[in-house]
Design a protein around this nucleic acid. Structure first.
Length: 478
RNA sequence: GCCGAGAUGACAGAGUGGCUAAUGUGACCGCCUGCAGAGCGGUUUUUCGGGAGUUCGAAUCUCUCUCUCGGCACCA
C-alpha cells in the first residue's frame, strides 16, 4: 500500500517516494516571533506534526527541521513600538511559541534553527548568489534576486503568470525601489542607524524575508528536500522565492520534491490573520479548552481543508473526543476486572481491521477525518464486546496498546482534562473517596436517595464523576 | 483582471462510477438505571447547489449556470 500526497508543485496527488530510500528530509516554515502565536499557527504545526509522526509510523527516518524567524521587519517594528530590544522581544515570543507547541503535543523538531544565529551563513549564500550572477547589489546597499534572468521560472509553484503577477493588486512600488525588475525580491536590506543590523559586504543591514529558509533548510536538511511544508499563504511569494534562491545556489532541481500546504483557519468564514485583527491566540483558547480538544479539533479536519473556528465547533470536537476517551476509560476499567481467560472475543481481529482502515485513510494524503471516523466504529464495537462478552485481560490490554499505537501518530487520545480543569481537582485521597462511596452505597441500599445524591453532588463539586454500573460504582476525576 | 478552492442530510464533515451515502454533534424514541452518567439499539437520512449530457448505472465523469470562500509581494 502506497502513501500518496498532494503536491502543490504539480497540483496532483502523487505516490510518495523520497529521494533517498527511507530517509525523509522535511522542512516546515516556522513562525515570525513578534507576538504570541494564534490558532492558525497551531493548525499548521499540528497538521505537519501529524504528517511527520505518520511518516515515522510508516518506518521512515524523518529529519524534521522547522525554523524561528526572529528578525525581520515585523520584529523590528514591533520592538520599536514597544521600546523593547529586538532580541528580548523575539526571545520572549520564541519561548511563548515553544510553550504552545509543547501544550499541543507537537514534537520537538530535530533542529529548530534561528535566523539571528545564521547571519554569517546567510551572507555567504547571498554572496554566492551574486557570484553566480543570480543576484545583484545596488548602490543603496540592497541585494536583490534577479528574477528577470529566470523569468520562465516565475510561477513554478504559485502557477501564476508574469502578466498575472504584474497586473495583480500586489503590483506595488516599494518605498525604496532600486530594483531592476518589478518582481525581484530582496535578499539583503540595508538598515538605518538605529535598527538591529549586521555588517555585510553591502553595508550594514539585515536579511530579506525569504533567504533564511533556503539557507537553513540546506544547512540542516539537505540541498534537496523531500517535503517542504507551510501554510497556503506562503506559496507566493515565500516558497517560490525559496525555490529560486536554493536552485540557483545548488544548481540542483527540484529544491523540494513535494510541497505541502495546510489550509486556513477562518472565523466567520474569514481568514484568521493578524492583519485582519480577527485572531485568537493559542493561549487564549488554551485558557478555555484542554489542549487535547484543540488538537483534536485540528486533526479531525483534513489538513488541506479550511476549518472554521468557533466555540461551538470546539465544543463539538470536545464531545466527539470524549466518546473515544470514554471508551478507553471503559477498557481500562474492564481490564481491572477482567479474568485471565483466553477466550477469543474477536478483539484482535477487530484491531487488525481497524488498523488496516486507519492506514488506508492516512495513506490517502493523510485523511485524518476518515481515519478518526474508523475509531468511532471501533469504539462502539469495543463497548459492545466489553458488556456482552467479558473478554479476558490479555485481549483488553491489546486494545489499550492499539490506542497507544495510534495515539503516537494522532496524539488525540491523551486524557489531559485533569491538567486544565478549572475546578480544584479534588484534594480527596483515594482512601477518602472509597469511604465516601461506601457511605453512599449504604444510603442507596436503604433507598435514601437524598443522601446518595448529595454525596454524588459533593463529588461533582470536587471534580469527581460517580457512575453506578451493574458491577458496582465507578469513579473518575474530571 | 489573473490564479485557486468549494457547494453533500438540522449542523459539521468523509466519500470520485455500482450492495440500504462513512463518521461526529443535535433532536427524538427504546434498552439499562431509584435518578443521573456512561454505554448499546433505532429514527431524523433514498439524498448529494440548479440544469443538460455520457453510461446498463453518477454525489462521483463532461458541459453549463448560480452562489460562497481564498491567494495575487505582511501572513501558518
Amino acid at each position: 500500500m502506497a502513501l500518496r500526497v498532494y503536491n502543490t508543485l504539480t497540483r496532483e496527488t502523487e505516490d510518495f517516494v523520497p529521494l533517498h530510500g527511507k530517509k525523509v528530509n522535511m522542512y516546515v516554515c516556522g513562525p515570525t516571533v513578534y507576538d504570541h502565536c494564534h490558532l492558525g499557527h497551531a493548525r499548521s504545526y499540528v497538521s505537519f506534526d501529524v504528517i511527520r509522526r505518520y511518516l515515522i509510523y510508516k518506518g521512515y527516518d524523518v529529519n524534521y527541521v522547522s525554523n524561528i524567524t526572529d528578525v525581520d521587519d515585523k520584529v523590528i517594528n514591533r520592538a520599536k513600538e514597544s521600546g523593547e530590544d529586538t532580541f528580548e522581544l523575539s526571545r520572549k515570543f520564541t519561548a511563548s511559541f515553544e510553550e504552545d507547541m509543547h501544550a499541543l503535543g507537537v514534537m520537538e523538531p530535530d533542529t529548530r534553527p534561528k535566523v539571528t544565529e545564521h547571519i554569517e551563513d546567510i551572507i555567504d549564500t547571498v554572496a554566492l548568489l551574486i557570484e553566480k550572477g543570480a543576484a545583484y547589489s545596488t548602490p543603496k546597499g540592497n541585494v536583490y534576486y534577479d528574477l528577470e534572468k529566470s523569468a520562465d521560472r516565475i510561477g513554478i509553484l504559485s502557477h501564476q503568470t508574469v502578466e498575472g503577477l504584474m497586473e495583480g493588486s500586489g503590483c506595488r512600488i516599494d518605498v525604496e525601489d532600486d530594483k531592476r525588475y518589478q518582481l525581484d525580491f530582496a535578499l539583503w536590506k540595508r538598515s538605518p542607524e538605529n535598527e538591529t543590523r549586521w555588517d555585510s559586504p553591502w553595508g550594514r543591514g539585515r536579511p530579506g524575508w525569504h533567504i533564511e529558509c533556503s539557507v537553513m533548510s540546506m544547512k540542516y536538511c539537505s540541498e534537496q528536500l523531500d517535503i517542504h511544508g507551510g501554510g497556503l499563504d506562503l506559496i507566493f511569494p515565500h516558497h517560490e522565492a525559496e525555490i529560486h534562491q536554493s536552485e540557483s545556489c545548488t544548481g540542483m532541481h527540484p529544491f523540494s520534491k513535494y510541497w505541502m500546504h495546510n489550509g486556513f483557519l477562518t472565523i466567520d468564514k474569514e481568514k484568521m490573520s493578524k492583519s485582519l485583527g480577527n485572531f485568537f491566540t493559542i493561549k487564549e483558547v488554551l485558557a478555555k479548552f484542554p489542549p487535547g480538544t484543540i488538537r483534536f479539533f485540528i486533526v479531525y479536519t483534513h489538513y488541506r481543508s479550511t476549518i472554521d473556528f468557533s466555540e461551538e465547533a470546539l465544543v463539538e470536537a470536545a464531545k466527539a473526543r470524549k466518546r473515544l476517551l470514554n471508551t478507553i476509560s471503559n477498557v481500562k476499567h474492564a481490564v481491572s476486572e477482567a479474568s485471565d481467560n483466553d477466550d477469543d472475543c474477536g478483539l484482535s481481529e477487530l484491531i487488525d481491521e481497524t488498523r488496516t482502515a486507519f492506514v488506508e485513510s492516512m495513506d490517502d494524503d493523510f485523511n485524518t477525518r476518515e481515519a478518526i471516523g474508523n475509531f468511532f466504529v471501533f469504539s462502539r464495537k469495543i463497548n459492545s464486546i466489553i458488556t456482552d462478552e467479558k473478554p479476558g485481560k490479555a485481549e483488553l490490554e491489546n486494545v489499550l496498546g492499539f490506542f497507544t499505537e495510534i495515539n503516537n501518530v494522532l496524539g488525540i487520545f491523551e486524557d489531559d482534562s485533569k491538567k486544565t480543569s478549572e475546578k480544584e481537582s479534588s484534594d480527596l485521597s483515594d482512601e477518602e473517596i472509597r469511604e465516601l462511596i461506601e457511605l453512599r452505597e449504604k444510603a442507596r441500599i436503604d433507598r435514601d436517595w437524598a443522601t446518595a445524591d448529595s454525596i454524588r453532588d459533593e463529588f461533582k463539586e470536587k471534580g469527581i464523576i460517580i457512575e453506578d454500573g451493574k458491577e458496582g460504582v465507578r469513579w473518575r476525576r474530571i
